[in-house]
Design a protein around this nucleic acid. Sequence first.
RNA 1: GGCUCCAUCGUCUAAUGGUUAGGACACGGGCUUUUCAAGCCUGUAACGGGGGUUCGACUCCCCCUGGAGUCACCA
Length: 486
Amino acid sequence: MVTRTRIAPSPTGFMHIGTLRTVMFDYFLARQTGGQFVVRIEDTDQARLVAGAVEGLLNTFKKLDLDYDEGPVLLTDGTLGEKGDFGPYTQSQRLHLYKPYADKLLTDGNAYVCFCTTERLTEMRAAQMAAKQNPRYDRRCAALSPDEVKARQDAGERYVVRMRIPEGESRFVDAIRGEISFNNADVDDQVIVKSDGFASYHLAVVVDDYLMKISHVLRGEEWISSTPKQIILCEMLDIQMPIYAHVPLILNPDKTKLSKRKGDVSVESYLAKGYLPATLINFISTLGFNPKADQEIYERAELVKLFDLSKVSRAGAVMNIEKLDWMNHQYLMQLSQGELVAVVQPFTTLDLSSLTLQKALMIERERVSRLTEFADKLSSYVSIASYNPEVLVWKKSTKEDSLLQLTNISNVLSLLEDAVFDSVTLLEAAIKEYINSNGLQNGNVLWPLRVALSGLEKSASPYELLWVLGKDETLVRLQQAQKLIG
RNA sequence: GGCUCCAUCGUCUAAUGGUUAGGACACGGGCUUUUCAAGCCUGUAACGGGGGUUCGACUCCCCCUGGAGUCACCA
């Protein structure tokens, strides 16, 4: 089976985290079957246009290293172009393509012109609500004569085109949920052409999916209830319906649909918080989809191979941020030094070309989960903040002893060969040897040494600090500590 | 409210009629340890309720309950 899947976001200026999941599922499906993954921009609502939104969206695709086969592309000069044989891929440029379909619906009697004003519609709904009826169009214009319609159109009266929902039942087999059916009596006469001449979502999407030969439509669960309108349109237009799969919602901790108010909704904000693209993709792809029972970390290629629409769960899922943090830490630990430098650099003003900081990065990632936390961790390697001399004293020791140990270890370290400073293991061996052969306690030596090197109560081990700082800086810091405590 | 979808640890999930209901995050305890982190071992914690079907139900059916989504000239 070769699939053509598509993602069709409205250009709001950012990518919703739920959209990312749908994108991933589309991507897996297309790559797995050797099919195509299409990006289409659904911008039929002129009132909601956001400047630069499409560029932003495509940029996010780029940041996540997600490739698609057809759709708008960002050209090197910053302008928009597109690739693929089924364009244009932006709905506002496809108005002429929707027109014949709308006309056919009208001439077949499957749609009708409606002159009702927004005010009347609002009043009508209010009255229906007051009477405890379901709000829906009352079909006042459904029986207008062709002559009257023409006369009023000629007079310049504003109008929309509505579907004439037939009696009967609409059913489809959802690839995730199985059979779903609706009584058409519960479906409203949907507007399919707006008064500004733009097709509404329902018409545009049905026509586009058909013309673009889309085989699989993956979208959020919130679309289930509008599916009968699209099924009916397909029937009226006599076109093949794609396979629909409604992906479960991503939820706030209180189990309601994820909203800005209650949490981060955009991919960009997670990126800005310091989650790696790979983490985000792994995490979001396995939210509601579990390839193997006892594995959490997956390569993208693995997911492509293992993805199975029928295994996607049907219930919504709360994002477990602690687990996201944990996962990001796992990914951070897998990076090479070069990769780590590259991903952290945008999150700090420090210049990470310094070897000391690169080493510090390798050490500090052990206790960091998000990229934003590095800047803080790195500062003590650049220069030591002023600290309370009492911190230099181990809880089981005394000030005098601490000073003595600092003085002695300083001498020992100054005599070590430079090569020893190139290895944490060698440093550790050398210091342990010194402690043991002199019958000292670890804490008496290691605690003051570590604090002298970091200025912190909590830090990496003294061996790691020595490795990062190097001999010269180490001796300087030990000097300062001795002065401070003395 | 109508319609629709959904229902296993706090959270994400595994189980496709027969398991001591498994894993992950988080949390507790222990080991390691100069501190922090990591690591290792380990513990607490779930099938919403009621009926069926069946020799046997987390798994299939029905009802209830609960939750969610949706009811625009927004997508």
